[in-house]
């Protein structure tokens, strides 16, 4: 399966708010730890190493 970079989440504005709200009361250290946990949890859910590799490339490519 290819990494899906097209819209895939309903209610994008709602999703985005939920994401940033989840860290609203966190300091930088806490947010960084949460992000790491989130990456691990989502990567495990995806499971497909090719998809994860494409995502790593996409996220790390143009900083």
């Amino acid at each position: 399966m290819d990494l899906n970079l097209n819209p895939n989440i309903d209610d994008p504005d709602g999703f985005y708010k939920e994401l940033i709200d989840s860290q609203r009361r966190m300091n930088d250290t806490e947010a960084a730890m949460m992000n790491c946990k989130l990456v691990l949890i989502l990567a495990n859910h995806i499971g497909d190493r090719e998809v994860i590799r494409s995502a790593l490339r996409m996220a790390g490519g143009r900083l």
């Binding site: 960084a32 730890m33 790491c36 946990k37 990456v39 691990l40 949890i41 495990n44």
Partner: peptide, 14 residues
């Protein structure tokens, strides 16, 4: 180091 600690924190539940 952050990823390492995240793994250890998650290990208990996941």
């Amino acid at each position: 180091r952050l990823y390492r600690d995240a793994v250890l924190r998650l290990a208990h539940e996941c």
